[in-house]
Design a protein around this nucleic acid. Structure first.
Lengths: 205, 205
DNA sequence: CAAAAATTTTAATGTTAATTAAAATAATCC
DNA sequence: GGATTATTTTAATTAACATTAAAATTTTTG
């Protein structure tokens, strides 16, 4: 998830660009964001962006790829860390939220998937589907191992993913609130999952 | 919520237009939707839309106003119907979901609030905030009356609203699934709210 | 330090879709 | 049915950005 130590200047600058673009898209909307806006955040000229990306469509695509990759990383980590289904579910949400309100910082909300060109769109949709399936698998495993109350995993997945994806709509970088969000949001989202009959009611720290 | 009986041809056509626009925006994204696309769905020419709306920005604004109004209606109805906080919370989600996957739908997902002109943007943001506060008030009342487990009402509200607002991202008008969504989604979203110590565990029908 | 490669800028150009005005058609009203 | 009003179309026009090519600058490398 972190940048490799030998990241080239190109990769670093490109990542800066994607973060700047995500900031703009989330703050000003897609149509409200010109390449000039993104470039300006970086102290560059709009034309300079074309050194990193073929066109605006690809900029969006890269932003979404980055967002998807961060989510995938969170889920992977959760799967490695959590002892049972419930823990994995909780930890996934927690890690993903930490990323979204943290320094990896702004993650682009995927509003404009439909206006990507076909190949890119299919790519993102495929990754998205895989991610959703991954979460549903966590839920299923938790139901199996008794840590999660039986539920409609598809709908539960939709609900949790929706809530996470929507975060950039109401969180705008306030550092004090970030702490609050990391603390509370994952708990709120997974509270309904916990198998009632379990002995412990303590939340994972 | 329903159209008044004496709705003029103008009002009817305008409402059709807003629904067509919502369909396009949700399906093709904002930037992927031209006025021609919207007009085409109605069997009209792009220029005809200007009879109903000053420009594209206002079309978006009207779509969002409509979406907000439908949400407000759902909450109002829930407040009139529910016997306690939990019921009101559940019913609100249920009514809102019914609208979003039902005949009133498609409801435009509010992705492009930031690119609205200032007055319109503030207008929508104000209504949105009011709506969120309304839901938080329901939660608080439920905590008060003992029907809802104490929780961070702000975060819980953010979670529930996010999940609802995201629905158009994964629901695309499949009638069979609509039934499933109405059945399951509200239950999933409110399951975590219910006060554990309550005698009844049956869901409201 | 000089040459080569990488990055950015300047200055046009192009394209797409929004917008407008005037004309044409359709609906309504007396 | 004829006049009036409401709605839609045709046919330009515009403007905002995205995009491009070539030149300039900066960075790296031997």
């Amino acid at each position: 998830m972190a940048m490799p130590a030998e990241a080239t200047r190109f990769q670093l600058q490109r990542d800066r660009m994607l973060r700047a673009a995500a900031t703009c898209f989330n703050r000003k909307g897609y149509s409200g964001t010109s390449l000039k806006d993104v470039a300006h955040q970086l102290g560059l000229t709009d034309a300079a962006l074309y050194y990193y990306v073929r066109n605006k469509e690809e900029l969006v695509y890269q932003c979404y790829l980055r967002a998807a990759e961060l989510g995938r990383g969170a889920m992977e980590l959760a799967n490695e860390t959590g002892a049972n289904g419930f823990e994995r579910a909780y930890l996934y949400v927690r890690y993903h939220v930490e990323i979204m309100v943290g320094d990896a910082g702004p993650v682009a909300i995927m509003s404009e998937i439909p206006s990507l060109k076909t190949a890119h769109r299919n790519d993102i949709l495929k990754i998205s589907r895989q991610h959703s399936l991954g979460f549903e698998a966590i839920l299923s495993s938790g139901i199996q191992d008794g840590s999660i109350e039986p539920c409609d995993v598809r709908m539960t997945g939709n609900a949790v993913m929706g809530a996470i994806n929507w975060i950039p709509k109401w969180f705008h970088g306030d550092a004090a609130m970030a702490k609050q969000v990391i603390e509370k949001f994952p708990e709120v989202l997974t509270r309904g999952l916990k198998r009632a009959s379990n002995f412990s009611s303590g939340q994972i720290e």
